[in-house]
Design a protein around this nucleic acid. Structure first.
Lengths: 202, 202
DNA sequence: CAAAAGATAGTAATTGATTACTATCTTAGG
DNA sequence: CCTAAGATAGTAATCAATTACTATCTTTTG
């Protein structure tokens, strides 16, 4: 029984910190999340954060690592369980939406990092995540063409980009509406159009 | 001849300020654009800005007004000149991409404003712009259905959202690549899939 | 029609608040 | 009992906003 213990081992404290940032990003502009706000949200003083992270940038780096690992693991698992390539794409789509529904701060952080000028570790991580995600998408699209599910005349790179854009569009809508419930309701309709756009015509 | 005059009429100075912000947003995270940076970019002192705007928020409000007016005017004009509803959608798509190509800071500002928690005048303006844009889209989609160009089974709201997402996806890609040239090259491929997704099957 | 008077626009310096980060002291817990 | 984790109390830098003052344009009037 050490549940309410104030002192945590360093690695646990780092995990808690990352979670705090993810939670805060759900409601605040990532650029405006201060170390003081992070510390307050996890019931620790601001200075304590710097016992476990050398800089604020290092915190963001850890957060981006967390996001990349979780998101890719989930969509990979979902895609693998699907029967066909097109079903894998749909599974990735649904899983991705589920993920950003559970962690509404994630797309905001991703987009926020990409917006920064210059180079930084978190920005590199965000870019790497999107590249790896795109590679998976293109893989399934090519498999779909080989399987005769996806029209071979479809531009693979364009299909990848529209897929990501479709998710983005849903996220943006929920940013405006302020609720993720409506986002999930709209998923089938959006994916139906996307599917129609790439699948072979019977 | 008063071209290099340091003193500008208030309305002209406000216009110059808005242009400065738009230009700065092309290269910097909107959240990190300071009043000092704006002032420096237009060769005035920081305090001078507050002679023409009551607050920094008021500057952003003016910027969002500028964006809304310019973008909607352009896409409306392009859509009107098109021969059919589907052609109007394509014209809007191309015009929108041209616009964000010319002003790369615009989508960053829009997204940045929407990310802010709470209510603010600039955020309301961003939301209004997106609503009005969406209304136009849905109008053309419905017209397309009536004209027999667009499949009546297509979910209009979903089609609107995917349209905006398609633009978003292209913009995000250019944020990663850091150049807008590649974005324009990818436009035809992306719109082709979208078009396929909504048009009636022959 | 020019010079005084007033209005408008901009400067330079400063404010209090907030930021990331740090130095030093305290305490929990194996 | 000693060391890792946290508290306390700072720092220097940066931010939006304001101040007192100056420069420049515009209008009025003798």
């Amino acid at each position: 029984m050490q549940s309410r213990s104030k002192h945590l081992p360093a690695d646990q404290r780092r995990d808690v910190t990352v979670e705090a940032v993810v939670e805060l990003a759900a409601e605040h502009n990532p650029s405006n999340i201060t170390t003081a706000a992070i510390a307050k949200h996890m019931n620790v003083t601001q200075g304590a954060l710097f016992r476990h992270f050398p800089s604020k940038d290092a915190i963001w780096q850890a957060v981006m690592e967390w996001v990349a690992e979780r998101l890719l693991t989930r969509v990979d698992k979902a895609a693998k369980a699907a029967a066909t390539p097109l079903a894998a794409l749909e599974a990735m789509f649904l899983t991705h939406i589920e993920f950003v529904s559970a962690y509404p701060g994630v797309p905001r952080m991703l987009f926020g990092e990409l917006q920064h000028s210059g180079e930084s570790a978190p920005k590199r991580m965000a870019r790497t995540l999107l590249r790896r995600y795109g590679e998976r998408l293109e893989g399934w699209i090519e498999k779909g063409k080989a399987a005769g599910e996806i029209d071979p005349s479809v531009d693979t790179a364009a299909a990848r980009q529209l897929f990501i854009g479709a998710v983005q569009g849903l996220v943006m809508q929920s940013l405006i509406a302020g609720e993720s419930a409506t986002m999930r309701d709209r998923v089938p309709g959006v994916f139906a159009i996307y599917r129609r756009g790439i699948e072979v015509r019977s």
